[in-house]
Design a binder for these strands. Structure first.
Length: 459
RNA sequence: GUGAGUGUAGCUCAGUUGGCAGAGCACCAGGUUGUGGCCCUGGUGGCCGUGGGUUCAAGUCCCAUCACUCACCCCA
């Protein structure tokens, strides 16, 4: 080794980026496998888009473009157009659909697994690189597509073994209708939505202050303030304090905003969604109409969804999405309505870990062929190769010393179930001493019977 | 970008009013030359995040800086 004099680098990783060691990776993989099965059962088709896009393709609203990671060459001057890493899978999907729309039968349903990047400060359950698992339906305005996405969300959470979750549902059209009714201009609407979204976190009294324009005593300079009339605030309050039952809520909302067309439309869509979900027997309390749900991404136009773990609400949404009917218009003159959802795999993984809902995934091998002594190394290779050809997970020891101690220790620490010990004695008899690493029991059997032995102990 | 907290062995962390750099776990060797875990004995491993200052003396006090973590914003 010629590295003895070099200065040691710290083995550090930038915040928000992570390594996955085998055990955790296996858990994450299990989540993906589980979700893939659900998505496929709905008929969603797999698809992948590029991780790198032109910056202008991704840059939409103010807030998101600040978080976009830029990609540079070694000589930035040479790259004429600026490139960036995608911050979600949805914008790329819209771009791709616009470019290839005649290749797809509409409505088109696709799923996609992919890493995305956002330049944010790391927090619990929040990373700078994380895995999203999306399902989207492109090419239909019908609320049945939104209902299907909600059903997919519910089914996925169930399949992942999550008991305590709520899917919040709202409709941007209802909120827009409300804003119109209250006489807000378009600039104020986004502020209104952001304030409303804080309801669960800071409570109605604080929200009221923000709507009124009072000082809140909240630490930061909270820039979101409106100056609504007392009457308007009363209307908002009525909409916030609705009965628990979804259909009663809808009725009340309808009464309050029936004179605004877009609001009526929004209520109608939610009615259709609930009617369809009702047919499936999804419990009513799982999918809850929540008018305070706004969601930030500026491309949502209709129904929006967010899944919360009720035992861990502070983690934020783990599977969220909504309808974005205008997004494809950024790339094409023809509009292409769409709706979809994104499973935050890494965030949900953190949540399930904290709640202790993940079982240890086993990736350990069945056999370690223990050849005793250097002269038995080749024998071990030979025996292992035969077993692997029969689909038995088999390892040989690859360390320096072929001693009993080293090899049993390796088997133990790696969780290997059986040590198949072959010393010169055994080899002469064409047998192996098979040791159960869990209870220490050991029996001697012919090498030719190893497969039979494996089949017997497999379950 | 804003606020708070934390940086000491590979990991988790102790370290008192400033006075020899510590523990547990992990790793290596031995107790056991054909038997892992448990136990016992010994060992490797550190510029105390970095730079400056105060002091006879700094892991400890002061200043700066960087990094990480949590929270805000926003979001999966």
């Amino acid at each position: 080794m010629s590295y003895s004099n070099h200065k040691l680098l710290k083995s550090r990783l930038p915040g928000g980026f992570r390594d996955f060691l085998p055990d955790e990776f296996a858990q994450r993989q299990w989540m993906l496998d589980t979700a893939v099965k659900v998505y496929q059962s709905f008929g969603f088709k797999p698809l992948q888009t590029s991780s790198v896009e032109y910056f202008e393709t991704l840059a939409g609203g103010d807030e998101t473009s600040k978080q976009i990671y830029r990609v540079f060459n070694q000589e930035p001057d040479l790259s004429v157009e600026s490139l960036a890493l995608r911050f979600d899978l949805t914008v790329s999907l819209a771009r791709m659909m616009a470019a290839n729309r005649n290749l797809f039968t509409l409505p088109f349903k696709r799923y996609q697994i992919g890493e995305v990047w956002r330049g944010e400060r790391q927090q619990r359950g929040r990373f700078r690189q994380f895995l999203q698992f999306d399902a989207d339906i492109v090419g239909t305005e019908h609320p049945s597509a939104d209902a299907e996405i909600l059903l997919l969300m519910y089914t996925t959470m169930q399949a992942l073994g999550v008991e305590n979750f709520i899917i919040k549902l709202n409709n941007r059209k209802i909120l827009n209708g409300l804003a119109l009714k209250l006489g807000m201009n378009p600039d104020e609407i986004n502020t209104f939505l952001r304030i409303l979204d804080k309801l669960e976190k800071i409570g109605w009294e604080e929200v009221k202050k923000l709507l009124k324009g009072d000082d809140t005593g909240l630490t930061d300079e909270v820039q979101d303030k409106l100056s609504l009339s007392a009457e308007s605030i009363n209307t908002v309050e009525e909409l916030i304090n609705l009965p628990p039952d979804n259909s009663e809520r809808l009725d009340e909302i309808f009464h309050l905003i029936q004179d605004v067309e877009i609001g009526r439309e929004g209520v109608g869509e939610i009615e259709i969604i609930f009617a369809l979900l009702d047919e499936t027997g999804v419990p009513e309390d799982r999918i809850s109409l929540d008018l305070s749900l706004a969601r930030g991404l500026d491309y949502y136009t209709g129904p929006v969804f967010e899944t919360i773990l009720t035992d861990l609400p502070s983690l934020g949404g783990v599977m969220s999405g909504g309808r974005y009917d205008d997004l494809v218009e950024r790339f094409s003159k023809e509009s292409l309505p769409a709706t979809g959802v994104s499973l935050g795999v890494d965030r949900l993984l953190v949540g399930l870990q904290e709640l202790g809902l993940l079982k240890a995934e086993q990736s350990a091998s069945d056999f370690l062929i223990v050849g005793l002594g250097e002269e038995m190394r080749g024998i071990a290779f030979k025996v292992a190769h035969e077993l692997r050809r029969r689909n038995i997970k088999t390892e040989v020891f690859l360390g320096d010393k072929m001693g009993m101690k080293q090899q049993l220790k390796y088997a133990d620490k790696s969780g290997i179930k059986y040590a198949v010990i072959i010393g010169s004695d055994e080899w002469a008899k064409q047998t192996a001493s098979v040791k159960n690493m869990k209870n220490g029991e050991q029996i001697e059997i012919p090498i030719s019977k190893l497969e039979e032995f494996y089949l017997k102990i497999r379950d």
